[in-house]
C-alpha cells in the first residue's frame, strides 16, 4: 500500500505517534474495517468468550497462525507431485488424506475427495448451500467462491461462468460440476500443461494456481 493513500486511517494511525507515546497495543492495521460495527461485535464476542473461560486470547492467536499458514501452496505441492509420480497420483485419487499426509499435510477431520481433469472431462467445484471448501488444504476460500453469483450460477451455466474466468474448453470436453453439499471437500487435479516436460516439482508447483484447483481455470505454463 502506498504510504500516503489519503484514507483517514493514516490519520488515525498517526495520532498516537504525534504524542510520541509508545503504543500500548499492536499498531493499528492498515484497513478500514476494524473500526466498523462488525469489528466491534467481533471484539465483544471474543472478550465475552474469554471472560467465560471458553477460549483464551493465546488460543485465538495460535489458531489464526495455523489458518494463515495454510494456502494454495499446499495444494500445489500435492498436484505437482501427482503430475510427476503416477503411483502417487493413484494414491491421491484413492486415499487422498493419506496421500497429503505423505507430504506432511495434515487435513485433520476433512475428508478430501480428488477429481481429475482429463482430455474429456473438466471438473469444477461449487457449494450452492454455503461455502464448503478444503480449507485445511487450500486455506480460506476466495471471495468469488463465496459470492451469491457463483453459488447461483455455477450449477446451471457452468460454461458461461468458466468463460467469465477466461477458461475456454475444447468442444469435446464434458463439464462436470461438483456441488459440495455434505461431508466431502474437493480438490480438482488440473491437467499438466504442455511445455512443462522435465520441469521439477518445485517449478511446477509455482504455476499451479488456486483457481485451477477449484476448476475455474486451467494451469498455464507461463503463469
Amino acid at each position: 500500500m502506498a504510504p500516503h493513500d489519503g484514507h483517514d486511517h493514516d490519520h488515525a494511525h498517526g495520532h498516537g505517534e504525534q504524542h510520541g507515546q509508545p503504543h500500548p497495543h499492536r499498531p493499528i492495521q492498515e484497513d478500514l474495517s476494524y473500526r466498523t460495527e462488525s469489528a466491534v461485535r467481533a471484539r465483544a464476542l471474543k472478550e465475552l468468550l474469554i471472560e467465560k473461560g471458553i477460549i483464551t486470547a493465546d488460543e485465538v492467536r495460535r489458531q489464526i497462525e495455523i489458518v494463515d499458514a495454510r494456502g494454495p501452496h499446499m495444494g500445489a505441492r500435492v498436484v505437482a507431485r501427482a503430475w510427476c509420480d503416477p503411483e502417487y497420483k493413484k494414491r491421491l485419487l484413492t486415499t487422498p488424506n493419506a496421500a497429503c499426509a505423505e507430504l506432511g499435510i495434515d487435513l485433520g477431520e476433512t475428508h478430501l475427495f480428488v477429481v481429475e481433469n482429463t482430455a474429456t472431462v473438466h471438473n469444477m467445484i461449487v457449494c450452492t448451500l454455503c461455502s464448503c471448501y478444503p480449507k485445511t488444504l487450500l486455506g480460506i476460500p476466495p471471495d468469488w467462491y463465496k459470492s451469491f453469483a457463483y453459488r447461483s450460477r455455477a450449477v446451471r451455466e457452468p460454461r458461461t461462468v468458466l468463460a467469465e474466468f477466461g477458461t475456454s474448453l475444447p468442444d469435446d470436453v464434458e463439464v462436470r460440476v461438483h456441488d459440495s453439499t455434505a461431508d466431502l471437500r474437493y480438490l480438482v487435479l488440473p491437467r499438466r500443461p504442455e511445455g512443462t516436460e522435465g520441469w521439477s516439482e518445485e517449478r511446477l508447483a509455482a504455476i499451479i494456481s488456486r483457481d485451477s484447483m477449484i476448476g475455474a481455470t486451467l494451469v498455464r505454463p507461463d503463469a
Partner: peptide, 30 residues
C-alpha cells in the same frame, strides 16, 4: 442458491481483516 438467476461473478478479492480472522478462529476453537 443453486440455479437462481444472478449477475456476473465478482472477481475483486480482499485480504481478511483482523476481526474476520478472529471470528474464523473463534469458530474453529468452538
Amino acid at each position: 442458491l443453486g440455479g437462481r438467476p444472478a449477475g456476473s461473478v465478482p472477481r475483486e478479492e480482499h485480504v481478511l481483516s483482523p476481526w474476520e480472522k478472529e471470528v474464523d478462529a473463534i469458530r474453529n476453537l468452538l
